[in-house]
């Protein structure tokens, strides 16, 4: 396998595998977030478990960080390499005649998602790490004895500007997944016999999952 991940096809596999991991992570993230709409208690319990269970914190979280960083860094490296493969661009290029806008602009939807991730980290991840690992408070409790997670979530969705930014970011996530889902399967060599079903399932995933996240953000904005 020496040199596999340095080859063009090896990098396709690596991008696809990190994409699969991130798509599964998104499902898991959504499953916990949707609890906040139906049961604040269940959301608190699940958040506390995810935030304190050792396997999540010390095994899955580092893998997730690696997956996110790898997907972005390799995405930028491949984009730079691909641009250099055509030194002079066409005077007239009718890309819309043969490919979707989403497939040709993955770098831009990816950049929008990266911008969102920075905002999301500032909003949630950095305060969480600060509370748990710098202040050393692993209790997950507010001074009044209730869990803090639901309170923190609803507080963040008060600002219409932040909610607007989240909604726009999820639209870009949807565009990215519209191509990314089936593309990842093509990259790992999925047979075209399954192409139609994969594309249908991929489109459903790409629309429904970001829509679900948008509904959660809007629900908390208009209910608190």
């Amino acid at each position: 396998m020496s040199g596999f991940f340095k080859s063009s096809i090896g990098r396709k596999y690596a991008m696809a595998l990190s994409a699969f991991f991130l798509m599964i992570f998104l499902l898991q993230h959504f499953a916990i977030n949707i609890l906040s709409v139906f049961s604040p208690e269940a959301f608190n319990e699940a958040s506390h478990f995810m935030g304190t269970f050792w396997a999540v914190q010390y095994i899955l979280q580092p893998i997730l960080i690696f997956g996110v960083v790898y997907h972005f860094v390799m995405g930028f490296i491949l984009e730079a390499k691909n641009r250099s493969a055509r030194v002079k661009s066409y005077a007239r290029n009718n890309g819309g005649a043969n490919s979707s806008w989403m497939s040709r602009n993955m770098i831009y939807s990816g950049l929008a998602i990266l911008a969102f991730l920075i905002l999301h980290f500032i909003d949630f991840w950095i305060p969480e790490i600060n509370t748990k690992y710098i202040q050393g408070d692993m209790s997950g409790l507010l001074p009044d004895g209730d869990y803090r997670y639901y309170e923190e979530l609803t507080h963040k969705f008060v600002s219409p500007l932040r909610v607007g930014a989240y909604v726009i970011a999820f639209v870009f996530l949807s565009l990215h997944l519209m191509h990314g889902f089936s593309s990842a399967f093509q990259s790992v060599g999925a047979s075209s016999m399954r192409k139609e079903k994969l594309q249908t399932f991929g489109k459903a995933y790409a629309i429904l999952l970001p829509l679900g996240f948008i509904i959660i953000a809007l629900y908390h904005h208009f209910n608190h």
């Binding site: 063009s8 990098r11 396709k12 491949l78 390499k81 691909n82 250099s84 493969a85 055509r86 890309g95 043969n98 490919s99 979707s100 497939s103 040709r104 993955m106 191509h179 089936s182 593309s183 093509q186 990259s187």
Partner: peptide
């Protein structure tokens, strides 16, 4: 360049 599965 590297294939990004645009299908063009």
């Amino acid at each position: 360049g590297n294939c990004t599965n645009t299908g063009a």
